[in-house]
């Protein structure tokens, strides 16, 4: 369970906070989707969780313990984060890359048999066994995202945070990645997923948190949060909401302006 309690983050010198008293939680066993327009504070929340931005006030609880009291390595042993940006200036072999997920556990110069087992499991769950000999800069976008998830799984955490994992992916890769994340959540993980694709996440998420200008404006099941009036106000665009005939999930349709 990842719980944000009245979290406020202000960038250095900024007049208004990027995240303003946000409170919400990502529970175990489900996907919590964090949605909202550009600049609403979604990625700032991820950065705050990572300790890249200091909290002005509030706190972040990981299974009940205060994130602020945790060392960076302890954090990495509890929650695995797949950030939006990652550099491939010096590409690695996929095998080597996934092994980096064991870094939080590394001690001295040796690796333990636990590491090998964790890596093996991560590779199997993310179904990337065929990619192990490839280089990270030679992967397709979809393959790269799966490999990144595998790296996060090698961390063997109970919580997983994904920042925009499906950007630039085609339909098949997008869907298969979300199926993978969904199965992880079904296995008991607490998953927090930042996304722009409301229609997509509405079909996988058990909960949806809508941010606007750093504040939580709606929090609940996707059907509740995806309300035309709320979304129109937040996104400042005319919107209609319908229902997917098969699954019953809400579907958002932005209108053309006249």
């Amino acid at each position: 369970m990842i719980r944000f309690e009245s979290v406020t983050v202000r960038y250095h010198g900024a007049a208004s906070p990027a995240v303003d008293g946000a409170s919400f939680a990502a529970a175990d066993g489900g996907i919590t989707a964090l949605v909202g327009p550009n600049g609403s504070g979604k990625s700032t929340i991820v950065r705050a969780l990572l300790g890249r931005e200091p909290l002005e006030s509030g706190r972040i609880l990981l299974d009940g313990s205060d994130r602020g009291a945790l060392k960076q390595r302890e954090l990495a042993r509890r929650v695995a984060v797949v950030p939006q940006r990652e550099e491939t200036v010096f590409p690695l072999e996929v095998r080597e890359y996934v092994a980096l997920g064991r870094y939080p556990y590394s001690r001295g110069l040796t690796s333990s048999p636990d590491d090998a087992r964790a890596i093996q499991r991560a590779v199997e769950r993310a179904e990337i066994a065929g990619l192990l000999q490839r280089r990270t800069d030679e992967l397709s976008g979809g393959e790269w995202q799966r490999v990144r998830v595998a790296r996060a799984l090698a961390q063997e955490t109970g919580m997983l945070v994904l920042d925009e994992p499906t950007t630039f992916l085609d339909i098949a890769h997008e869907m298969s990645l979300l199926e993978l994340v969904h199965s992880l959540a079904a296995g008991g993980m607490a998953v927090l997923m930042v996304s722009h694709q409301l229609n997509l996440v509405a079909r996988f998420a058990s909960r949806m948190v809508l941010l606007s200008r750093g504040r939580v404006v709606a929090d609940g099941a996707p059907v509740e949060v995806m309300d035309a009036a709320t979304l129109e106000a937040v996104y400042d665009w005319p919107i209609v909401i319908s229902r997917d005939a098969a699954s019953g999930a809400p579907v958002l349709l932005p209108l053309r302006k006249r």
């Binding site: 991820v46 940006r85 990652e86 550099e87 961390q155």
Partner: peptide, 25 residues
């Protein structure tokens, strides 16, 4: 430096990824 090498591996992934893997960047 050899001892710091795994940390450098992680740093090479970028600031956020390094922090996510437990590096005090």
């Amino acid at each position: 430096l050899l001892r710091l090498a795994p940390e450098i591996d992680v740093l090479a992934l970028g600031e956020e990824a390094a922090a996510a893997l437990g590096s005090d960047v």
